[in-house]
Design a protein around this nucleic acid. Structure first.
Lengths: 200, 200
DNA sequence: AACATTAATTATCCTTTGTTAACGGCCCAC
DNA sequence: GTGGGCCGTTAACAAAGGATAATTAATGTT
């Protein structure tokens, strides 16, 4: 089932235009295998243990990747929102069942494609490769930025950076998930917020 | 200056064979713009503020990416060794001067290429793209693993994981750099080591 | 070999975080 | 409206980490 008139496709075709110079007519084959998916808030997109290689462009909404620790606590790896990709790196890169759960934090609209299918299209039409490189590099850069925050900054500074860099997103995500992403407990984040508040 | 008979090229051509089915004769053009570089232990490869887009495959040795904090302390972002790539993501991905310093921890032998040149070769010969995807995905996966450690584990658990996953490498890197990578001070790492020791 | 430099450990004190539990606010279902 | 459940805050205590400084160990240089 394909979806030729989604906003996501238009955005991606704009990327392709910039990256490759190819117009919508030429890049259309890339989207033939894609389909739109809607998720309700709190709905699971990829369950733990899943082996599917879903790759999705987020057209609308916020999603969360997390896992359950032995003690039962959740640990949030990252959140992604409009304009970003969401996928299980365990299945796509490491070829093993997903250790993580991918879940909608809000009602979401995704443009989904199977990674293997996309990979075949890319191999047949390598002129689309710049799009893959673009997203891989962007995800790599964002990951390195997160590592940088952990290595450089205290939890308090990480939180400050988070709200100054991503104020819009922070307000769409419960604090407990932000705490987890920052590597601290919700209790500690609450204290951090209080400390910051008192300084002003 | 090119270098047609390095061990690095042989390794990379083996990757290419596996990933694309192309033999050494066919993939040779990819290495025409590459050159071998040797670094002495402690020698800087990419200085802070550099704008060059060097990309290097590490044939031998260990390298470290780090930055200097306002207080003068160093913060190590990651270390890389044989079989991995080293490059400034600030310059290549984000198109800005490098905030990081890339320095040899041991005597190193690298196979170097300018990223823009490589990019042009890839665009002309897109059948080589799987190699780029392979390395980008591997670096992304490793970065996500590091984030996972920060989000899931305590500093003590992170250190345990580090020595169990990368025992060989740990022994080639001074503890203070490991401490920095783990997000703690050298003093704290020393206490962690003592705690672990006492448990056995 | 002697010296200087750097790295790792230990000690002290202070700050921060983790843990557990209690409390209040908010939303939702009934 | 009322009763649950979830979430964020607060409190109290224990555990861990940061800062600084002193000591010891290891390394490198001449």
């Amino acid at each position: 089932m394909n979806a030729f008139s989604s906003a996501a496709i238009e955005i991606l075709q704009e990327f392709l235009q910039k990256l490759t110079g190819l117009g919508p007519e030429e890049t259309a084959p890339l989207f033939e295998a894609s389909s739109t998916v809607t998720l309700q808030a709190n709905q699971v997109y990829i369950p733990q243990g899943d082996k599917s290689k879903k790759l999705a462009f987020i057209e609308k909404g916020v999603m969360r990747a997390y896992a359950i620790k032995e003690n039962g606590d959740e640990a949030t790896l990252y959140i992604r929102w409009e304009g970003q990709l969401i996928a299980s790196h365990d299945t796509i890169i490491n070829l093993r069942p997903s250790r993580f759960i991918y879940r909608a934090l809000e009602d979401c609209k995704l443009l989904e494609v199977d990674y293997d299918v996309l990979d075949n299209i890319m191999r047949a039409k390598p002129e689309f490769e710049p799009l893959r490189n673009f997203f891989l590099m962007r995800m790599l850069s964002e990951s390195l930025d997160m590592i940088e925050s952990f290595v450089f900054l205290s939890p308090e500074e990480r939180y400050q950076k988070l709200i100054s860099d991503k104020f819009n997103i922070v307000n769409r995500v419960p604090d407990k998930h932000l705490a987890s992403m920052l590597g601290v407990t919700p209790v500690s984040l609450s204290r951090i917020r209080k400390r910051i508040q008192q300084k002003h």
